[in-house]
Simulated scan of single mutants.
Amino acid sequence: MTAPHSSTPPFNPPFNPPDPPPSPADSAIDLRGRTALVTGAAGGIGAACALRLAAAGARVRAVDRDGSGLDALRARAEHLPGAVEAVHLDLTDLDAAEQAAAGTDILVNNAGTQLVRPIQDFPPEEFRAVLTLLLEAPFRLLRGALPHMYERGWGRVVNISSVHGLRASAYKSAYVAAKHGLEGLSKVTALEGAPHGVTSNCVSPGYVRTPLVEKQLADQAALHGIPAESVLTGILLADSAVKRLIEPGEVAEAVVYLCGPHASFITGSTLTMDGGWTAH
Rank of each mutant, 00 (worst) to 15 (best):
Y207R: 02
A170W: 09
A178S: 08
K187F: 10
S169Q: 13
P211G: 06
R140F: 06
T270W: 09
R244M: 07
E250D: 15
T267C: 10
L212F: 02
A168C: 12
K187M: 02
L185E: 02
N159H: 11
G268H: 08
R143T: 05
A221T: 04
G249I: 09
L223H: 09
Y257P: 01
P147E: 03
W277Q: 06
E247S: 11
A137R: 00
V198K: 07
A178V: 10
A190S: 08
S269M: 13
S162I: 01
I246A: 15
Y257S: 08
K172I: 10
G206K: 02
F265A: 15
A194K: 12
H148M: 12
A221W: 00
G155E: 07
Q216A: 15
G181V: 00
G197V: 03
A222L: 11
R143F: 00
G197F: 05
A254L: 07
C202Q: 05
N159M: 11
R156C: 10
R152Q: 15
L166R: 06
A263Q: 02
N159G: 10
V255F: 06
E151Y: 07
S161D: 07
G165P: 06
V242W: 13
H224Y: 15
D219F: 09
W154M: 13
G184Q: 07
T272P: 04
A190V: 00
